[in-house]
Write a protein that binds this DNA or RNA. Structure first.
Lengths: 237, 237
DNA sequence: GTTAGAAATGACCGACCGGTCAGAATGCGA
DNA sequence: TCGCATTCTGACCGGTCGGTCATTTCTAAC
């Protein structure tokens, strides 16, 4: 009955350690989402995880900072997986449909995981704009994980001629910016009882983003669709 | 020579007070951009503004929080002005050109005022997601100043039939999301010597955003342009 | 020059928190 | 059961910082 130290897949001892680590990260997520990095206290994380403060330092010798990094890293890993899974389908599927699927899943992901979105908004930016070289590098690395994954289908769609040959990195940033902007709107929306707007549903939001992104706002093309490069239009002084 | 307390436009005493207040806010902007709210110290702000710490509390009895609010409020006011100025032109100008002008100015505004963008990124979100009812309300109010201003031209363009009749609030959020996403990319880009990308210029960025926003990514319309409502497309489970 | 009121100042206080470490608890093999 | 090793723990320490207020400095009216 009592476990033997046999050569099982994972040495038991280690598995338990991993479980505890996960519990600590769970607690950290919760507190970070609620308070933000600056106001979160190690003490509270420890309390929620039901460990002594000192124990956290066993698992995360780097202290608060290391905990934040671990949490953020997980969030971005999940996001990258989500991207990769969303585009895994056959290559014949129209780009528009593939992206529509991704966008829908991304909204769903963060809608049922508010706290992760909060952490991303509150802390990721802070890392990116931190004065500390190390932190900035970490942030860029994380962001590139996702951007890199998303660049693959974008490039494919450009090569197949489905979408305009604009700089892929820029397209990726715009897509991510759109997602963030609308997710933000939805998050704020139910934060105060819908002040004015008719409360976009997750599905409506997906359609909307896809439409604007792929079809554009204009009702009638101002100039030929195959005018692929932005070209020069009205500039201002 | 010595000033008289005459009934001039502004009572001198008050003007000087206003100047000092402005100097303090300048210093605050600088420190907030560099360190963020949590790590900024009143002491440092006072030092840079060349006042004693106590004096700051004369001008901002609410302390650190009130200072942040004042700074953020100014940023949003400027932004709203920028929106209103950009669309003040005659009503016959095509919507696309008007928005192109706005987008260009917005990039220019934040490109030559990095520190304001930083503050917006680092702190505004934090306010929006704060647990405190009061802070959230403040944030929403600020944001609405800008969103409200931008909604005007959007509504006009919808009514004139130039752009699709999608929910104006959503369009506004997407526009703002795009601007933020791309501005962010540019900010990060020159934060580390351009890792890979060919470094989007401010003007290229404006064209790019305008193109995607108005003309869409697709090279050929997948379905009729006047299919104004997003309609149902590929959904996923 | 005098003085009353306003404004500026920075030493000080108390709260808070990240991180440490000596000792307690626990596990585990002999 | 014993004893060693590993892990857990929370009281404690040092440092920081927001905010206060008694004192000083300035201003301007008389």
């Amino acid at each position: 009955m009592t476990a033997e130290t046999s050569v099982e897949s994972v040495p038991r001892r280690e598995r338990e350690r991993e479980m505890r680590r996960a519990a600590m990260l769970d607690a950290a997520r919760q507190v970070l989402a609620e308070k933000g990095f600056a106001d979160a206290t190690i003490e509270e994380i420890a309390q929620i995880a039901e460990f002594g403060k000192g124990t956290l330092y066993n698992y995360f010798p780097g202290g608060k900072e290391e905990i934040l990094h671990a949490v953020v890293e997980d969030v971005y890993d999940d996001l990258r997986d989500l991207v990769e899974r969303s585009f895994a389908a056959d290559a014949t599927e129209p780009a528009r449909d593939q992206f529509r699927r991704f966008i829908g899943r991304a909204f769903a992901h963060f809608t049922e995981r508010r706290e992760l979105f909060r952490i991303l908004m509150k802390e990721a930016q802070r890392l990116g704009f931190s004065g500390d070289e190390e932190r900035v590098r970490f942030y860029l690395e994380q962001r590139r994980k996702v951007a890199g994954a998303l660049e693959v289908p974008v490039r494919r769609a450009i090569e197949s001629g489905e979408i305009r040959p604009l700089p892929p990195e820029a397209i990726v940033h715009m897509i991510l910016g759109n997602l963030q902007g609308v997710q933000m709107q939805m998050a704020l929306q139910d934060r105060i009882g819908t002040c004015t707007a008719p409360s976009l549903s997750s599905d409506e939001a997906s359609d909307l983003v896809t439409t604007i992104l792929f079809d554009g706002l204009l009702t009638a093309p101002a100039h030929p669709r195959n005018d692929s490069e932005p070209g020069t239009h009205a500039h201002d002084a």
